[in-house]
Simulated scan of single mutants.
Amino acid sequence: MADLVITPENVIAGADAGTETGAAGETIIAGQQLYRSSATKKLMKADNNAASVEARTAIGTALNGGALDQPIKFQKSGDVNVGAILTPGATYFLSDTPGGICPAADLGAGEYVQLIGIAKSASVLTLDYKYTGVSN
């Protein structure tokens, strides 16, 4: 398997969505996993094999895209249509592709495990961000 193939225009927050906003620190696409840089306070793409713990710790799913310094709304909790085909009941994790989401089978050696959520249906992911600090 591979990272989820996300169609950005299909990323839609659920009715129970917990959201926040911030400025983009780089180009971001809807559906990508984000962290907030402590140095710039801007949103960046999270990556499970990044050098810093901060960059490996996703805090939300981008609900819209934008270029540097544009406003980004992101979802931290609740249900989200991630714009991809999911396996109901499966768990999904932060990928080693910046901003990506992958199934558990795609977590490689040396990658840090961060749960993003559990598939509620073939299109809806219930977000449950948990950074373990454990390298696979």
Rank of each mutant, 00 (worst) to 15 (best):
A119P: 00
A104F: 08
A109N: 14
G65Q: 02
N64Q: 12
E20C: 12
Q33N: 15
D96C: 13
F93E: 00
S38W: 07
I85V: 15
A58Q: 03
G99W: 00
T132V: 02
A90F: 07
I101N: 01
L63I: 04
A109K: 13
A55S: 09
K41G: 07
E9R: 15
F93I: 04
Q33V: 13
Q75L: 04
N10G: 12
E54P: 09
Q33A: 14
P8K: 05
A104D: 07
G99K: 00
F93M: 02
L63Q: 03
S123L: 08
R36W: 09
G99R: 01
S38E: 08
N49S: 14
N49F: 12
L68R: 07
M1W: 10
D106G: 10
A90P: 09
G108R: 07
E54N: 11
Q114I: 02
N49Q: 14
A17Y: 01
A119T: 01
A15N: 11
G66F: 02
I29H: 10
Q114A: 06
T40C: 08
Y129F: 14
G108F: 07
A119C: 03
I12V: 13
T7G: 11
L43M: 05
A122P: 11
N64K: 06
Q114K: 04
T7I: 11
M1K: 14
L127C: 07
G66N: 04
K41L: 12
F93C: 01
L63Y: 03
Q32H: 10
G66L: 03
S123Q: 14
I28G: 01
R56E: 02
K73M: 12
T91L: 15
K45M: 04
I29G: 04
A67G: 12
D96Y: 09
P71G: 14
A55Y: 05
S52Y: 06
A109F: 15
Q70M: 11
L4H: 00
Q70D: 08
S77H: 08
A109Y: 14
P98F: 05
T19V: 09
I72G: 04
G22P: 02
L125T: 00
A122Q: 15
N81T: 07
A55I: 09
A84E: 01
D3W: 06
G31S: 09
A104N: 08
D47G: 11
A30V: 05
G99L: 01
L115Q: 09
D106Y: 11
N49P: 11
R56L: 03
G31M: 07
D106A: 15
L107Y: 06
R36G: 11
P98D: 05
E54I: 09
G31Q: 05
D128K: 13
G65S: 07
V80W: 00
G65C: 06
K41H: 10
A30C: 09
L125M: 03
S37A: 11
T57G: 04
D79T: 15
N10T: 15
A119E: 01
S123K: 07
T126V: 14
V80F: 01
G83H: 02
Y129H: 12
M44G: 09
V80A: 03
T21K: 11
T27S: 14
N136F: 12
A46I: 04
P98I: 05
P88T: 05
I116M: 06
S38Q: 11
S135I: 10
L86V: 03
Q33E: 15
E9Q: 14
L43T: 02
K42R: 13
P98M: 08
Y112R: 15
D106H: 14
D106M: 13
G117V: 00
G110S: 06
D16G: 02
D96N: 13
Q33W: 12
